[in-house]
Design a protein around this nucleic acid. Sequence first.
DNA 1: ATGAAAGCGCTAACAC
DNA 2: GTGTTAGCGCTTTCAT
Lengths: 338, 338
Amino acid sequence: MGQNHKRVTIYDVAKKAGVTAATVSRVINGKTNVAHETKERVLKAIEELNYYPSPLAAGLHSHQSNQIGILVPFFFGEFFYKVLSHISQVIPFPYELVLYDAATPEIKSRTIQKIFGEKKLNGLIVISLPLLKEEAFLAMQSELPLVLLDNVHPSFPSVYFDNVMGMFHATQHLTKMGHKRIALINGAHEDPFHLAVAKNRHEGYRLALDMAKIPFDPDLVFVNDWSRQGARFLTHKILKMKNRPTAIMATSDLQAVGVLEACQEAGVAVPDEISVVGYDDMDFADFFGLTTVQQSFQTIARIALDMLVQAMNHPGSKPEQVALIPTVVVRKTTKALE
Amino acid sequence: MGQNHKRVTIYDVAKKAGVTAATVSRVINGKTNVAHETKERVLKAIEELNYYPSPLAAGLHSHQSNQIGILVPFFFGEFFYKVLSHISQVIPFPYELVLYDAATPEIKSRTIQKIFGEKKLNGLIVISLPLLKEEAFLAMQSELPLVLLDNVHPSFPSVYFDNVMGMFHATQHLTKMGHKRIALINGAHEDPFHLAVAKNRHEGYRLALDMAKIPFDPDLVFVNDWSRQGARFLTHKILKMKNRPTAIMATSDLQAVGVLEACQEAGVAVPDEISVVGYDDMDFADFFGLTTVQQSFQTIARIALDMLVQAMNHPGSKPEQVALIPTVVVRKTTKALE
DNA sequence: ATGAAAGCGCTAACAC
DNA sequence: GTGTTAGCGCTTTCAT
């Protein structure tokens, strides 16, 4: 049971192959200046001894762990899950993924300090989280490549879903169908991390209204948390309004489902009596026939990694900003006004 | 822009504090044999230099990276997301989480070989994946502590949700309400990883039938993939049966939703004309009023980490097996037979 | 309580 | 093409 098998090192391989450690190292790292026949011998020895180079020892030299960090606020549910899952699918060999959970802004800051203090990662992807000034400063001092995903900062490569445009298109889908009284159910503007989602989506909504020359009516804007229950509650209020809106634009699918739920409870037919639009196109949106806003997680993951690799290979290259414009998926909860 | 600030090492701290590296090391690692006053000076120097010990260098000595690995088949959707999220909440200081994606059985094997070859992790949690004989052998040779989550192996600490019992209780909920013709919609028995879920859930179903002295009818068992669409398709067939079942037991909520969908399409009222039970209690189950089987992710994560810490601190202690018995959440898709 | 020195496993000049 | 040698930054006996 678990005998203390002594660790096999590069020297064991060297001895077995009748060469020195340097040569073994050359083989491992694919250097070209090794005789073909020697290389074969070394490879055979590696195989036979089942040798795995110590990443710790190799890393001590290069100051690199061959790991890419992912900093993320864990509560993001399906959104986060999808991003992470796609990242893990496109992460280039031989990098490993280290997960850092920014449960609170304090933990986030401490984690960032540690990451840039230790400098062992080959790269870092920060998801959804904005960088505070000090944090950005730290990152800029460092050689550790950083890219932002679902967020922007002028000093770092960033890919993000354009929330303003996404919401603009979604709302415009409604205005183009003749809707003029469009209620907005938004998530909280204030959150511990100071995310810009709520603000941006609000802005997109306003933009579409302006474009359609519909005066903005503050009484049509409702804010709550991002929950289904919150939206359900608000919808009941909306449905009771004297001059009831003909459409409800929600800032997330979860909320949109709450809206649907309330409509059903109140006996208001969707889309015949009221149109409903969500945001996110989560797995269940299709089931509900929900018209919503779709974002490509695969694309954002791929671009983030491309940017990171670019930054790792060409340090100092100037940071690109890429906005991904979400598209509207029209399903069955929206209908043109007669 | 990113000047090459030279890395601050333990020697810099030592010099600044007027001691040697050994003393600084003692302070960092909380050894007691350091004069209080010296310790203060060292701490101050660390602070002022903003020193972070190199985990790579420290690790070269201990052969440890202070990281815990998580090996997981990424496609598990909400299930996986919840487990991971809870694990990240209970992971003890100062460990980091390294994510290994076992996209295919081959990648899984290779990853396991690498992990046990490199031996740098302090521990490994394998989620949902069964261990092949060679893999288990590798792990047993090694000192690297391993725990299985959502799976069992006699040689390793394991925590898992008891699928047999979960399904047993769910089915029994139905039999107790007088249902005798209960269709089973199961996921595929065969999958690349040879998971035991489908088999176990089938067994639980059988067990409840036996217990209620209901003869097993193979014509009532339907198998497809785990998808909503698959279940929807099967349900349409079920609803057309001459002697239609009075209840459908699905092996996942996703499938249960497909069942609900088909019932609605066919104009069959749930639960009045047919009862439906799901499995998983996903976020949306509540919305659908779905009667289903609930599992505590928080508990499974906590226990897995406890076991891992135990194994790390007391190598050689004998592996425990913990089965978590899921409970049935009764909502509105099930009803007693008149 | 603190310092000196060896060594963890690998890499990279620099020789030959 | 291959060997020699000197670190990388930290920990840990062993002295004192």
